[in-house]
Design a protein around this nucleic acid. Structure first.
Lengths: 214, 214
DNA sequence: GTTCAAATTATACAGTTGCATAAATAGCCG
DNA sequence: CGGCTATTTATGCAACTGTATAATTTGAAC
């Protein structure tokens, strides 16, 4: 029979391989290209094994989504906090570093955008995807909110919990939009442009409400 | 045999039906749910007819993408220009109306987001989708750029062509981000919040470059 | 070394997919 | 009203899909 040889992977590694393979497939050929067979091929195993680690293909995709979003938020936090000046930076500067990390590679990246868009497109199709979205969205937004709260606190401004949440939503939106633009049209800006635009826009959004033109 | 009865559709109508059916399928069940048979069912025809109007399923999806983006840009322009105050508004106010139209229903809409995300996810998979993206992106951005140019001109500010493009990219990004947020988390803001945040952020982005905090 | 559970492969299956082709109909032109 | 062409349906097909199941192999415990 000449059966294919294999080895037992260490705890959790195979599962991770399958998730990574799924992300590769989706990024390169879209969700349509992420078939159980293609995924298995990428992961260097046979298709049946997927069902040993996941109840079905859907759950594998869910895991891939969660993983992607965790990585993104984690990367932003890590990059910001790992910056040399972070330790003795004031809250406003820390927020700027967070924005900078969000709008620079490797967070700004065409492949990540493809994955993200694929998952977003399923939010209104699959309730489980919606739940993952909500959770990961809030995780990121909470980081933003914490930073904003620090800024306000540091500068002696006061804001209700609801106001704070509103600011966080707005800042999050600005970051997302520039991130999107950077991923899609990365060649159109110098990288620094994106960051400086982001910081300027975020500061504007954080200014207290005034009478406005319209 | 009792063959199914049918009627000849007027010029272009059948093609449009197929595009609409495709959009319905994608919005409700994702790209995976947009099979030729499902699309035909929705359109009230049989599957084979798709190949009479389109070389293949891919081209149908391309047409659906182009249509979606044209509609969005068209809607924004229409809503802005149709506003009562538009006629005697100054350029800055017209830009604000454009932002407002971009960040209000029916442009801000969960279904449209699903469609948009599906298409975006294919940009790096299918070069034809990339071309459609580029074209529709520029069409929207050109509108933004024209409005900005008017503002600058009206207020006696000068800007090079390159600077103008950069401002347009930035403003576009801010609009996109808030649009995204509005579609995803529509229930979290009052609609007016989104608009006022958008206008504030856009105005900030248009302020001339200064020394910045970082 | 044997034993044995856990990990992996192999195969089979019923349903679905996009597409090709042939047959049938509709409705306009004369 | 008879014919003709554009439009539409019907059917078939080969490839592919996710999943179920059984057979095999691995590697660690003893």
């Amino acid at each position: 029979m000449a059966r294919r040889s294999f080895h037992h992977a260490p705890e959790g590694a195979r599962r991770q391989d399958l998730i990574n393979a799924t992300l590769d497939c989706i990024a390169e050929n879209g969700l349509q290209g992420a078939t159980v067979r293609q995924i298995a091929l990428r992961a260097g195993v046979t298709a049946g094994l997927i069902r040993y680690y996941f109840p079905g293909k859907d759950e594998l995709v869910h895991a891939a989504y969660g993983e992607t979003m965790n990585r993104m938020t984690g990367q932003v936090k890590f990059l910001a906090e790992q910056t040399a000046s972070y330790e003795h930076a004031n809250p406003r500067q820390r927020l700027a570093l967070f924005v900078e990390a969000s709008l620079s590679p490797p967070v700004v990246d065409a492949r990540t955008l493809s994955l993200w868009a694929t998952f977003i497109s399923l939010i209104h199709v699959d309730p489980a995807m919606a739940a993952i979205h909500k959770e990961s969205y809030l995780a990121f937004r909470n980081e933003v909110e914490r930073l904003i709260a620090s800024v306000f606190n540091d500068e002696g401004k006061s804001a209700t919990k609801a106001e704070l949440a509103k600011y966080a939503i707005a800042v999050n939106a600005v970051i997302d939009g520039l991130w999107l633009e950077g991923c899609l049209a990365g060649d159109m800006f110098a990288e620094n442009d994106l960051v400086s635009i982001g910081i300027k826009a975020v500061e504007a959004v954080l200014k207290p409400e005034e009478a406005e033109t319209a």
